[in-house]
Computed example of a mutant assay.
Amino acid sequence: MSQNVLGTNVITQIGILVNDIEKTSQAYAEFFGVEKPKWFWTDTVDVAQTEYMGKPSEARSKLAFFDMGSLQLELIEPDQHPSTWRDHLNAHGEGPHHIAFVIEGMKEKIAVMEAKGMKLIQKGEYTGGRYAYMDTFPQLKVMLELLENDK
C-alpha cells in the first residue's frame, strides 16, 4: 500500500458555488433549522496574495460557513475577476466546487501532488493560514482544496 499523499483522509469541508449567497444561505439555514451565518468578503489581493493560474488575481468571493458537526459547508459567491470560483461557476453552474483537507507542509504537499500530475490552480492567504486548489479532476474527479492553518 502506498503512503497517504495528504497525511490525512478526513474531509474538513465541502465548497459550493452559488450565484446569490443571501438566498442560498437562507435556504440552507431553513433546511437544517439553524441560524443563517453572516457572509463576508475574502481579503483583498494585497492581503490574500491570490494567484490564479500562476498570476496575481484581484478575485474575491463572498463566503458563508455552516458548521455541520465534523464537516463544514462553505458557500462561495465569486466576484467577476478571474478565479477558479468564477471559471467553474461559469462553466458548470451552481453546485459543488471542492472538498477540502487540513494539511501540514503546504509547499511539500503541492510539490508531491504536482509530481503526480495534479496541477496547482489557485492559492492564497487567509487570516490564520493559506489555501491551495489543486486540479485533481483527471485522477479523483473532484477539485481538492488544501488548507494549512498557522500554529
Rank of each mutant, 00 (worst) to 15 (best):
K38F: 10
G129E: 06
D46Y: 00
N9M: 08
L6F: 06
H98M: 08
S57H: 08
T24P: 06
E58T: 09
T12L: 12
Y133D: 12
N90M: 13
D79F: 09
V5W: 03
V142R: 08
K62A: 13
G128C: 08
P82E: 07
T42H: 10
N19G: 07
D67L: 10
E51W: 04
F40T: 05
K141M: 14
F137I: 15
K123G: 05
G93W: 14
Q26P: 00
G128Q: 06
T44M: 05
I14N: 09
A64P: 09
L17Y: 13
I14P: 01
V18G: 03
H97W: 02
L75W: 03
T127E: 15
V112F: 05
I76S: 03
Q26T: 11
I99H: 02
V34H: 00
A100D: 03
G54K: 02
V142L: 10
A100Y: 13
K38A: 14
I11L: 08
L71S: 01
D46M: 06
E104H: 13
M113H: 09
E74W: 12
T136K: 02
E58M: 07
N90V: 10
G95F: 05
D135S: 04
E108Q: 12
G15F: 11
F65I: 02
P37K: 00
D46R: 08
T8P: 00
I21L: 06
F31Y: 10
H81M: 15
G93Q: 09
G128D: 05
S83A: 01
A132F: 11
I21E: 03
K36F: 02
L120F: 12
M134V: 15
A27E: 13
A100Q: 01
M53A: 13
A132H: 04
I103D: 08
T84A: 06
I21G: 12
A59P: 08
R130S: 15
M53C: 04
K38P: 00
M53S: 12
D20P: 10
Y133H: 13
Q122C: 07
L89G: 04
Q72T: 11
V34G: 01
S83L: 08
Q13G: 02
K119L: 03
F40S: 12
K141F: 09
M118E: 09
S57A: 10
E77L: 09
P78L: 04
E22L: 09
P96W: 04
W41Q: 07
Q26I: 07
N90W: 03
Q139I: 14
G129M: 00
E22M: 10
V45S: 08
H98D: 04
I14C: 14
T127N: 11
K116W: 06
D43R: 05
G15N: 03
Q139L: 13
A48F: 07
W85K: 03
K38S: 11
F40M: 01
R130I: 04
E30P: 04
T12N: 15
L120C: 10
D87E: 15
I121S: 14
K55D: 10
V45L: 01
Q26S: 15
Q13T: 04
